[in-house]
Computed example of a mutant assay.
Amino acid sequence: MQVDLIQEARRQAEICNACRYCEGYCSVFPSLHANRSFSDGDITQLANLCHNCRGCYYACQYTAPHEFDLNLPAALAEVRRDSWETYAWPQPLARRFNTHGAAIALALVLGFALLFAAIKALGSAGGEGFYAVLSHNAMVAIFAPAFLLPLVSIVIGLRRYWRDVGGQRLTLADITGAFGRAARMQDLAAGHGEGCNFEDEDRFSQGRRHVHQAIMYGFLLCFASTSSATVLHYVFDMPAPYALFSLPKLLGISGGLLLTFGCAGMVALKLKSDRHVGDVKAFGGDIAFITLLGFVGLSGLALYALGSTPAMPALLAIHLGAVLTFFLLTPFTKMAHGFFRLTALIRDAQRKRLSQ
């Protein structure tokens, strides 16, 4: 990891530890105040606990022009991004995609090209609906590795993270407590449940919490849609296409709507926010990835709506190309933050349990 980023975050954390004005703002400060000194692993853990709600920055009396020049949300955001890049495997890809929106756009174009080429080369041996364009076996051959290989990469990264932050043997209570906080997006409600200062320093808002929830639950519903279709296909011998009121369609449409509107809302909030209170270098990569994720939802909805028209083959290639790009980039983009933040919450729950 970059030593200068860790050192600057440590300097600011030590000042915050002496001040303690922001105690109770979010899960960062109880964890910060539990230490008298901070190892590199401690700083990495604090960085991944931080949700960049910015309340501490706007409440702080030691920001510029004070000589302490504190900007803890930005310092932790830089360490957080550096930690994802350091723990990612293979590492060079993460350092490219986390900060370069153009690289994500290029990957998307390549994803489209690969799917158009696959459709042209493999075609279909016969089938209904989407399978009339690309066979089921061909889809499985393309997307199974595209899903499993990034999953392996994430597991490798999380194991490295867990080791460096001092993680120990887990209990069920550690895991359930962390999942509960993540499901409620509790830290995005800030200390007293008023919300973030993400959009405007003088205004508390639940907007960022709500769009985060829309994206998270939209993604989970889309994943559930694909999973239910897989069960119907292999267990009940009910291949696609499915009716409008079938489980895969209902889950997919609701998930696609949440994902599309959630990502649009997140982009709007980021464009209104003060960039210098976050990781400036990662802004372009963040916007590009959120746009990609929203496009996955939007193209899926378009495919649902126009699946029985002559536009279906082109829409299928576009949607599957976006999904393929999303899967392959998952360990190397902002998507990784969900896995690392959940792991940080589990480690924090463990810290609380062991300190009792």
Rank of each mutant, 00 (worst) to 15 (best):
K281G: 15
G255Y: 10
L292K: 10
I156P: 07
Q206H: 15
P90C: 09
F327T: 02
L257D: 00
L293Y: 09
Y234Q: 05
T291F: 01
D348H: 13
Q356W: 06
Q2S: 09
T309I: 01
P30I: 04
G111Q: 06
D237N: 14
I6L: 15
F327W: 12
A74Y: 04
F143G: 10
A311H: 13
P248H: 15
D202C: 00
Q45A: 15
L328E: 02
A141Y: 14
F261C: 01
D187W: 04
V267T: 13
F179D: 00
C56Q: 10
A141T: 13
L342M: 14
L32F: 02
Y217A: 10
I287Y: 02
F204N: 06
L122Q: 14
S135W: 08
D200P: 01
R169S: 13
V140T: 15
I43A: 11
I253W: 13
H276P: 02
R208F: 13
V3C: 05
D164F: 06
A336L: 02
F198R: 04
V28I: 14
L220P: 08
R181H: 08
L320V: 02
R81N: 14
A322R: 01
A314C: 10
K352D: 12
W84R: 04
A288G: 03
H136C: 06
L303V: 07
A224L: 15
R203E: 10
R163D: 04
F289K: 04
F340G: 04
H33C: 08
L106W: 07
A117K: 05
A240R: 12
D40V: 12
K270C: 09
G126S: 12
V296R: 03
G101H: 00
V79I: 08
A102G: 12
G195S: 11
A138N: 14
P313Q: 10
G284D: 11
E78I: 02
G321V: 01
H136E: 15
G256K: 09
F97C: 03
C53V: 08
Q350H: 00
L114R: 09
L220I: 10
Q12M: 12
T226N: 05
L342S: 13
G101F: 00
H51T: 14
A77T: 01
A34F: 04
V231N: 10
A88M: 11
S273Q: 11
R36C: 05
D187I: 03
T171V: 11
L257Y: 02
M238T: 13
R208V: 09
A88L: 05
R10E: 15
F219N: 10
A282W: 00
W84F: 14
E8I: 03
L354P: 00
V296G: 03
L298Y: 14
L301G: 12
I175M: 08
L320G: 00
L259D: 02
S355L: 11
H192G: 07
D69F: 06
C196S: 15
R80V: 00
M238C: 06
Y217L: 15
G127R: 09
A75G: 12
V296N: 04
C56E: 05
A243W: 00
S27T: 15
L271H: 05
L188N: 10
